[in-house]
């Protein structure tokens, strides 16, 4: 590293550090603002006085949430879908990726299956026929409507099979000579060696399912079927911004409990914040793996 720093270099460094620090601040302010509102005294929050620290610290919004049946039910639906999707999606992706990672010589039908996987990824169904399909399967209003239609992740299969292909084939060949069939080779050689990519895909599935709201919106029969994100969506999105008069909006805001809504948003963010450290470790390498050529 060069020791001499010219005056120009020092100025440039200061500017770069300042810009990056500002970007960090800009990223954090909306998040800290909502956290501060959720922890503020309701009157102060409604008056719009809260910036990035709570005014009149109060936990009452959070205690209210833990007594609110509707949001707890929605959170339950979300947890249920995440767990079910995690198990089902992972089993499907491992089972599909293994045969597809074989050479054309070892598995002659591979080409056709690849076409189906990629074709369905590129040309997806429109929402209305999709809705009628879920309806015809008698899944509307059940947890399965949120789990099954999206259970096959074509992109995840491609990530996984690319990873499988990079595992040295000698390992498999020697197991084959010892008499291990395809199932044993998959479960005892491939799966244990693929933990990094499994973790990446598992995180994709968890985050994707936790954040999903649209399926909950169209496949639910009643509001108690809503997963948490759909519940929040109904709460914050349907509030009427069409009123043109400033005073009218003020009145509306006074009735709506601003700090309670803020607390609900914060609660919904928590699971993502919890898995975030792991995501940093795996997600980013996963994104890079996605660009690995077949």
């Amino acid at each position: 590293m060069s020791i001499r720093l010219t005056k120009g270099d020092m100025i440039a460094n200061t500017i770069i550090y300042t810009i990056l620090t500002l970007l960090v601040v800009v990223t954090l302010v909306p998040l800290l603002n909502i956290l501060a509102i959720s922890l503020s005294d309701s009157a102060k929050a409604t008056a719009g006085l809260v910036t990035i620290y709570p005014l009149g610290l109060s936990w009452s919004t959070y205690t209210t949430i833990f007594k609110d049946h509707a949001i707890l039910t929605a959170a339950g639906v979300s947890c249920q879908r995440v767990v079910l999707a995690l198990v089902i999606d992972m089993v499907l992706v491992v089972l599909a990726a293994y045969p597809l990672s074989r050479s054309k010589k070892a598995f002659r039908s591979r080409g056709i299956y690849m076409w189906i996987v990629i074709g369905t990824m590129l040309f997806g169904p429109s929402t209305v026929p999709m809705f009628f399909t879920v309806k015809d399967m008698h899944m509307l209003g059940t947890i399965w409507a949120l789990v099954i239609p999206g259970a096959v992740g074509q992109f995840h299969i491609i990530l996984m099979l690319n990873y499988f292909r990079n595992i040295p084939s000698e390992l498999e060949e020697s197991a084959s000579i010892d008499g291990a069939g395809p199932w044993r080779r998959l479960l005892q050689i491939y799966v244990p060696l693929s933990m990094p990519i499994m973790a990446t895909i598992a995180l994709f599935v968890v985050v994707g399912n936790w954040n999903a709201y649209y399926d909950g919106l169209i496949y639910s029969m009643k509001t108690s079927d809503f997963p948490l994100q759909t519940y929040i969506q109904q709460l914050v999105v349907n509030y009427d911004t069409t009123i043109r008069d400033v005073d009218q909006v003020r009145d509306l805001l006074a009735i709506s409990n601003r700090s309670l809504t803020a607390a609900k948003l914060v609660i919904t963010m928590i699971p993502i914040l919890l898995v975030y450290p792991f995501m940093q470790k795996y997600f980013i390498s996963g994104i890079m793996l996605g660009s690995v050529k077949e």
Binding site: P30, A47, T51, N211, Y213, V236, V237, V249, R258, T261
Partner: peptide, 21 residues
Amino acid sequence: FFLSWVIMAGIFKDFFSIDGL
């Protein structure tokens, strides 16, 4: 990036509201 648009919409609707920051 990892937060849903539902959450972000909730936050920004407050952030840019009449009594927002």
